[in-house]
Design a protein around this nucleic acid. Structure first.
Lengths: 339, 339
DNA sequence: CTGTTAGCGCTTTCAC
DNA sequence: GTGAAAGCGCTAACAG
């Protein structure tokens, strides 16, 4: 079991009465082979149900036609959507995807990178974890890496991300446009570039509207449901509570919703609520949840395309890395209303 | 770029003043090496930041230390949870995971299998698509394959699945225990073994309670949200509507919820509702959704363990394949109530 | 257009 | 305990 394929190229060559190089030429269409012999080779191949050995080919060519994808938590619904985009594009280009989950742990991320390099992947797509040291590890190697979603501390890397500053601004302006002036924000974890940037966008929008951001309306830190519950209660228990709350990720939003439920507050009558990321169930909540959606499929597809391009045309060391920004999309439902 | 590592075993050997076989012995701890030379080798390895080439090793040993995982749709939240279980167990055992998404398309599934075989994976974990022909493709090869979640038409394969008959029964008995007698079921797609089995469990429970299953209470077919909406309306528009509805998957449940919303029916006062699979947002819906949860992490972990075992101890052809059944778990919340 | 040949980087007998 | 040497299956000069 798990044994090699029964037949090798030599068997095919023997059966077809040609040399292995001819078989190789037929398979790779690298050089022209006379129709007659080509026919014989093809016949022999299917007679033996021959499958080329990708490993031997990789060893010879130095290219694996495989890429690595590392995400911090595949059960976070954002990533599977991205991965699907990568997968489809990769498959179309003849690449396989090695998937790794770092569990938001820097040491595991490092081990995964090492393993991927050892497997000679042609490139890596990486959503790094907080305080990632990946850039240092990558610098020593010469393999193209695309950062997605989250940027490492030094942002001087190839990346494709949602334009989170614009997304934060978009969210805030939607609320502002509805007449809200007291807007609370659960900003998430400032060590995570998307959260950091969304807050920046929020700040920008408030500034342009000449509105102050009250300290007590801004809660940053963790990103789990319970953190959202706590922050929600904190905000809603204020003497002058906000009339709208913006949650920087889906779990925080779920937490806010729970706090709202517990306080018997009515959405959107008493409070408008808006989150980032848009999943199937968002629209089936009642009321439907307004959200700033990320184009996850695009992020996946474009990150593969960029990586593929880098694999085929290795950049010289002095070219500045590309940053690809994907727009976010406001999906208005019934959790936000005019003040 | 995408070029091989700078250093090979020969470089390490040269620097350490030993032969490549000694370096190999140190790395694999295959034979005892004198402490002194071992030290020198280790020093040389770290001095060069040497990483063994997994591809060359695979070619030589015939084992890739990689497994393939194929799922029909990675954006279905069930699979990422399973994959995480696989991933963690695989990583602990030194295996990498090649992930493929078949998009519920038999032809793509076949291509993925071919690619995985070509890459000489040591085994495959497969959630097959409807009408899968995978068994035939596998029969010709000699690679262990574990079916998860969904079983192929012929169930004579190694598998690890939720005990869906028991799960269906569990769900029905919960409703029965609450005094419901008129129970509607959105049974999903009968070509999918989990749906098929859950219906069987439902039937069993009804039979044991000496209750008939009305034809108009049983709706099978598709599995998308819209199908749930339509079926929900059909059920709720009946002259004598059911007092409880059981939905065989999460999307159907979402659809029912929408129909309920549109008809201004109150859960659980007027209708009890229960679904399969349990996700984070289920408990944050109001009311919290009662669900039969699958132990997704266990499915993933155990399927890897079984596969690993098969890789290490190839079964003889006449041993009957193992079927591993994972229990389901009823999580009672507020969407089901006494009738 | 076709075959011969020399490795890719590693593991593994097999002598020493 | 250690090294020399032979490949794993394939591709890519190169010579014919």
């Amino acid at each position: 079991m798990a044994e090699r394929a029964k037949y090798t190229m030599r068997d095919v060559a023997r059966l077809a009465g040609v040399s292995t190089s001819t078989v190789s030429a037929v398979i790779n269409e690298s050089v022209v082979v006379s129709p007659k012999r080509k026919e014989r080779v093809l016949a022999a191949m299917s007679a033996l149900d021959y499958q080329p050995d990708a490993i031997a080919r990789s060893l010879k060519t130095g290219r694996s036609n495989a890429i690595g994808v590392i995400v911090p938590d595949i059960t976070n619904a954002f990533y599977p959507e991205v991965i699907r985009g990568v997968e489809v594009a990769a498959q179309a280009a003849g690449y396989s995807v090695l998937l790794c989950d770092s569990s938001e742990d820097r040491a595991i991320e490092e081990r995964h990178l090492t393993a991927l390099f050892s497997r000679r992947v042609d490139g890596v797509i990486l959503a790094c974890c907080v305080n990632s040291r990946a850039t240092e590890q990558i610098a020593r190697r010469n393999i193209p890496v695309i950062f997605i979603d989250r940027l490492p501390p030094s942002r001087a890397v190839y990346s494709v991300c949602t334009d989170n500053v614009a997304a934060g601004q978009l969210a805030a302006e939607h609320l502002l446009g509805l007449g809200h002036k007291r807007i609370g924000m659960l900003a998430g974890h400032m060590g995570l570039s998307p959260h950091h940037d969304r807050l920046e966008g929020f700040r920008k929008a408030m500034q342009e509207a000449h509105l102050p951001i009250l300290d007590e309306y801004l809660i940053a830190g963790n990103v789990q449901v319970e953190d959202g519950v706590e922050a929600g209660h904190r905000l809603l228990g204020l003497p002058t509570p906000p009339t709208a709350i913006l949650a920087s990720n889906n779990k925080l939003l779920l937490g806010v919703l729970q706090a709202v439920e517990e306080r018997n507050i009515s959405i959107p009558k008493d409070l408008s609520v808006l989150g980032f990321d848009d999943y199937l169930w968002n629209m089936h909540f009642s009321p439907g949840l307004t959200a700033v959606a990320q184009l996850t499929g695009d992020i996946g597809r474009k990150s593969f395309e960029l990586l593929h391009q880098l694999i085929q045309n290795p950049p010289t060391d002095d070219t500045a890395p590309t940053h690809m920004l994907i727009p976010a999309e406001l999906r208005i439902r019934n959790s936000t209303a005019r003040r």
